[in-house]
Write a protein that binds this DNA or RNA. Structure first.
Lengths: 212, 212
DNA sequence: CCGCATCCGGGGCGATACTG
DNA sequence: CAGTATCGCCCCGGATGCGG
């Protein structure tokens, strides 16, 4: 991107990551870890393939990510964040916490959704009401790849769920699932909105709205 | 800007503030408070006038800032952040702290500078080594409008200096002034780089590199 | 002087097609 | 699967004009 030519920390940061799609690419690598080109494409609906390729080239040049030629069993390149790239997590967090307010009304027409994007709403809205309880996992199934929300020692984390068996499984459209998680909907209301809850539903009582 | 059409908190945030120049406009309003159009222009060297006008219109429409028609004595409009706009401060902080690493080598050819942009480097690099000491002020004079760094109760804040008399005054080129503040240069080295220190220079001993 | 609006050239972006 | 190639368009940058 064209430089702002300002000797200012914010402007210098934007010189590097201010291009369109750039921060969303870093979002994918932050949430999903080292990823293949095709996985990045799936997590970035709407991006043009040439733009993704060009951004990856530029981000490699500026030391934000690294391209690793994976060993023969995989036989494809993996893109992963460098230390400098991973240090952008606080930027994503601040943006995500600010942007969550735009999600409460539900998706706009044409919006795409991937379950792992729930990381920020969950982090924003939820706490574990029973920090001393046993670790439990909640599978969230909203159409694409399922993700697991883990409650452990009072912390809630969201990560791609790789075939693990969860204690409770929630499936349905993104907006009512989010509503159920945040407490905007109770289980009965969520069912009316097409959400199904399987397994130990009482675990959901451990989800507590985060303090404002 | 064109929407990413992703039901994701980060993408929704970027839909609103992802346009070029937008976050820098919010930077100016955050650092300087309610500002006139011309003051914004001075703090945003390189921006085209039509772009500034268009961004201000759009940011007003999305509820990030408000235009106040100032009473007759001023006879000009003031732009100020709304609550939602002010809530972007953590985003600027995260970006600024990440971007500071690009400033240590000094400005690139053609870089413009405004003293109030020092807020992030100071916040990043400095602590008050004598939290119980009396409040003191340091005037930083780097060519444009001077700013005041206040040390009070262990906190360091940077704000535009409005005619106040400071305990010590540092003037010179931005990079060596920054070097002196951060401890990369001692006073003798800074003088060699054209920096002048007037007043109670011993106050600078209270500046302590921030813990990594 | 302040606060824009208008015009125009160039480049970044978006969509699709194509290839090893 | 992992990109490259191409093309139209719109956003951006820079200059100028202009009413209050």
């Amino acid at each position: 991107m064209r430089s702002y030519n300002q000797y200012c920390a914010v402007a210098k940061a934007l010189d590097v990551i201010g291009d369109r799609w750039t921060l969303l690419i870093i979002r994918e690598l932050t949430l999903r870890g080292p990823s293949r080109y095709t996985d990045l494409r799936r997590g970035l609906p709407g991006i043009a393939t040439n733009l993704l390729a060009e951004r990856l080239r530029e981000l490699e040049r500026t030391g934000i990510l690294a391209r690793e030629e994976a060993p023969p069993p995989v036989a494809t390149a993996l893109f992963s964040l460098t230390e400098r790239g991973a240090a952008l997590a606080p930027v994503l967090d601040a943006l995500g916490l600010w942007g969550v307010s735009y999600m409460t009304e539900g998706p706009e027409p044409g919006d795409e959704f991937r379950a792992h994007w729930l990381a920020w709403p969950v982090d924003m809205f939820l706490r574990d009401a029973d920090p001393d309880g046993a670790p439990v996992t909640i599978e969230l199934d909203t159409g694409d790849d399922p993700v697991l929300a883990r409650l452990d020692a009072g912390e809630i984390t969201v990560q791609p769920g790789r075939g693990e068996i969860a204690d409770v499984r929630i499936s349905g459209e993104p907006h009512p699932v989010l509503g159920l998680l945040t407490g905007a909907l109770d289980i009965a209301q969520a069912r009316d909105a097409g959400v199904t809850v399987e397994g130990r539903a009482e675990i959901l009582d451990r989800l507590q709205p985060a303090p404002a």
